[in-house]
Nucleic acid binder design. Structure first.
Lengths: 222, 222
DNA sequence: ATTAAAACTAAGTGATTTACGTAGGGATGT
DNA sequence: ACATCCCTACGTAAATCACTTAGTTTTAAT
């Protein structure tokens, strides 16, 4: 009899954590530990209980979930990360994998059975992706092959730094400078600076232009 | 001091019911009764406890949630139905309203605050729709101008005047209030007022939300 | 190992723009 | 005649913009 799989849930929504916790506790081979609503708390709990699997959302207050994955890889390489996100976009998936995530599931249509299977799979150190995610990944790879021949397009996209991209995405969600500053735990002046830089790089003449650009380029939803 | 709002949750997913139940119980003015996973059970509980508000999903095993709404209207017209669905499609929304639903919220992006507001609103017998849903409704009603089978109050509530539509379109072009004012030869204040009215009609929380709506609605180019 | 470049952070400050509540006048329809 | 809707507009408070400067950290290259 092997020990149960210790799972840590990271999500800023209380109800979701509670719901998942309930659900997972019904499985005999899984042990859910105290959840975390942000990265700091998550890392603290990881140090304390050394879980086998961390299930995390990506959109959270403060640093993004990507950062959490990165830090876990650095300091706790034995802990396997399973992303449970409401976004099934190239960007999120790619960056999660790059940061070291072992699995990626969409919140939308993941069933209890799938989630359990995913947990058990990543707990063994293997990878697990839902069909929808796998599709995006394959598209990503074929895309990267093509893009080597089109440096112009890459250059354009690459001209935004990761921080700028992150902030641009938050603008597309309709957040104000202040709200973005709070979300990222940085000064509103910094947000303004980043925005200014974005606007200058692309010569946007208004915030609306910027958002339209982001939407066209799949940096934001809708 | 009025009595608490009695709420019945109908959803075939155990975790979701549990999560919502948890969440709603934290509000002092709401009392959550035993949930139901199907129509039969739901009607049975309604007969027993006579709730003020029924929150229901639409996709359920057996008969659809629409049928539940219809039956509630027939036998318990005082019970207000709030739909909480993962689908924000014309079909579902239209049929829910036709069946007598007082509110419709997408599962995807409804916040706790919104849900509570929606519950309190429909408990008073008023209607409540999230921006995304209102968008679909307005689209629905703008096509069939005179529909005798449908509540016209909703259409009016969620439709924009010609001036508002005109101004909204200019916003999607990236124009500022001032530029729009010049273009239309009216005061910037007037433009602001129109914008304000648009924002209120759809409960937009930011200009970006408004523009995203317009783009999705083909009022502006994407 | 050291250095240069780039990225992230942040503040000052005056000008501009927006948010939001309130309100008058005209058309319409009942 | 009266309620209602629509377009118009203002005042004040709040937020954002535009530009500049600059310290700290990361990354890349020699």
């Amino acid at each position: 009899m092997k020990t149960r799989i210790k799972v840590l849930l990271v999500d800023d929504h209380q109800i979701i954590r509670d719901g998942l916790s309930n659900m997972l506790s019904e499985a005999g081979d899984i042990e859910v530990c105290e959840g975390a609503a942000d990265i700091t708390k998550a890392l603290e709990i990881i140090r304390k209980v050394d879980p086998d699997v961390v299930i995390t959302d990506l959109s959270m207050p403060g640093k993004s979930g990507i950062e959490l994955i990165r830090r876990i890889q650095e300091k706790h390489p034995g802990v396997h990360v399973l992303v449970l996100s409401m976004y099934v976009t190239e960007d999120y998936i790619f960056n999660s994998l790059k940061a070291g995530a072992k699995g990626y599931l969409p919140k939308q249509d993941t069933t209890k059975a799938e989630l359990l299977k995913a947990i058990r799979t990543v707990a063994r150190g293997e990878e697990f992706f839902s069909p929808a995610v796998a599709q995006v990944i394959s598209k990503l790879y074929s895309h990267s092959v093509k893009s080597t021949t089109t440096p112009e397009a890459i250059a354009r996209k690459a001209s935004l730094t990761s921080r700028e991209t992150e902030i641009l995405r938050l603008y597309t969600e309709g957040l104000s400078n202040m709200e973005i500053a709070d979300r990222l735990s940085i000064s509103i002046r910094t947000v303004e600076t980043h925005k200014n830089n974005i606007m200058q790089k692309y010569n946007f003449k208004s915030t609306v232009d910027m958002v339209k650009f982001a939407i066209r380029n799949n940096l934001g939803e809708a």
